[in-house]
Every structure is written in C-alpha cells, then in structure tokens.
C-alpha cells in the first residue's frame, strides 16, 4: 500500500490524470492516517458546497416536481391514466432528473466557485507558496473539496428527490383530486430499490467529474484575472458536457447491461 501511495505522490506534471492520481494517493494514505484527509477542512467544505446549496437545490427540485406532474397530467389525463402520475414523477426523479438537475445546480453554484477560488489563489502565488512550504495543494485544497462533494452530492440528490416528490404531490392533491395516501403509496411502491441506487451511482460519478474538473481548471489558471474568468467558464462548460455524456453512458449501461 505504502509503495503505491508513494509512487502516486511522485507523479510529476499538472494534467488532469495526474491530479486524479494525486487525489487517490492521498485518499489511499488517508485510509491508514485519517489526519491526511483534513477532517475539519472537509467539514467546512461540506457546509459550503453542500449545506449552503440546499435552498437552491430545493427550489429547483420542487419546480421539477411541479412541472413533471403538470406536464404528464395533460397527456395522461386524456387517456384517463392520471393514476400513473405519481409513478412517473417518482421514477423520473429517482433515475434521471434528480441526479442530473441537482448536479447541474452544483456545477453552477459550487463548481464555478471552486474553480474561481483556486484560480485566484494561483494568481496570488498562494498555490506556489504552499508547494514551497512542502504542503501539497492537492492535500489541503483539493482532497477536502473532493471528499465534501462526493459525500454531499448524493445527499443533496436524495434530498432533492424528496422535495421533487413533494412538488408532484402538491399538484396531484391540489388540481387532480388525488388523495395523499394514493399519491404516497404509488410514488413510493412503484420504484424499486435499484432505481434509487442507479440515481445515486450517477450522482457519485457526477460529483467526481464536477470537482476534478473545477480543481483542474482552477489550478491551471494562467494570466491573471482574465485567466480566472476563463477557468471558471471552462469549469462550468466542461462539467455540464461531461455530466451529460456520463449520464448517457450510465443510462445505457443500466438499460442494456444491468
């Protein structure tokens, strides 16, 4: 184990793969020495990246729940199939829209902030100062943010799913004369446990993409304030692009293989 960790820490260069290798070297090291993972910094980042994103994520999830229920009632109502609206809202949120939309909110809110923060630190020579003090920027800046998002995005996703279901419930109760017990029974019983798991697997992959892309772009800033702006934009654009590609790939994997 120690050999692998030290070999990974010796990797030179500033590429995306190198950054990932460094992150994993510290995570592996952290298995035997948890102090390496800077628990206090990780907790601080969990609050900044996760807890402070709750209001925005809730609002988006609630709106998506409203939209799903209203849009589906238009067509399903014609077929007399309004009873399937809770199933549709629930499955759509758990499998697809919950993880995807919460991830996109986090990209815009936290991914861009991480890229801008690290980029500004690079411009102000703070990153170089850390290196010269023999303190790995990956260890104290990237790893806490990585762990924070890997923990908080799935939690935000589950929370968003619940709020989204509440949005669908409000529409069904308020406009479709559905009873609460009917909605809850269908929304909870129809999906299988795998539907929840598949969404959570997606959110973990999205978290990895968001934070590694944001840190890579932030640490790679050159050229002052303009460079910080470029890195922030690139972080958002590439994160959304790769999230959607990963989503398609994972959905294909779950649909055809599993």
């Amino acid at each position: 184990m120690k050999f692998v960790v030290n070999a990974l820490r010796r990797v030179e260069g500033d590429g995306y793969v190198t950054l990932n290798a460094r992150i994993y070297s510290f995570l592996l090291w952290g298995l035997t020495n948890p102090r390496v993972l800077s628990p206090s910094l990780t907790l601080r980042q969990m609050i900044r990246i996760g807890v402070e994103a709750l209001p925005m994520a809730s609002l988006v999830a609630l709106s998506v729940g409203f939209i799903l229920a209203m849009q589906s009632s238009t067509e399903l109502g014609k077929l007399g199939a309004n009873a399937f609206i809770p199933d549709l809202v629930s499955l759509s949120l758990l499998r697809e829209l919950g993880p995807l939309l919460i991830a996109i909110i986090v990209v815009g809110r936290s991914g861009s902030a991480v890229a801008a923060e690290l980029g500004t630190m690079k411009v102000n020579e703070e990153i170089e100062a850390l290196k010269v003090m023999a303190i790995s920027p990956t260890r104290i800046l990237v790893v806490p943010r990585y762990l924070a998002l890997m923990i908080m995005l799935p939690i935000l996703t589950v929370f968003g799913n619940c709020v989204g279901l509440a949005g669908g419930w409000a529409v069904c109760i308020g406009t479709l004369d559905m009873t609460s017990s009917f909605y809850i029974t269908h929304a909870v019983q129809r999906p299988e446990l795998w539907d929840l798991y598949s969404g959570l697997i997606k959110s973990v992959v999205f978290a990895h993409l968001i934070i590694t892309i944001a840190c890579y772009q932030g640490l790679g800033v050159t050229g002052g304030a303009e460079g910080v702006g470029r890195a922030t934009t690139a972080s958002v654009v590439y994160s959304i692009l790769w999230i959607i590609i990963a989503d398609a790939a994972l959905t294909g994997l779950f649909f055809f293989v599993l």
Binding site: V11, A129, K131, V132, A134
Partner: peptide
C-alpha cells in the same frame, strides 16, 4: 528530484515572496 523528494528539501528552507503570497 521528483515532487516527493523535493518536499524533503523544502522543509529546510523558507521563501519570502515578493508580495507576501499570504492565504487570504
């Protein structure tokens, strides 16, 4: 030296940056 070896050397010197490079 690779970055890992360099860190061993860096523990023995201090660097005073032109603009301080303090963590904001």
């Amino acid at each position: 030296m690779d970055p890992f070896e360099l860190d061993r050397i860096r523990l023995r010197f201090g660097m005073n940056f032109q603009f301080g490079a303090l963590f904001q």
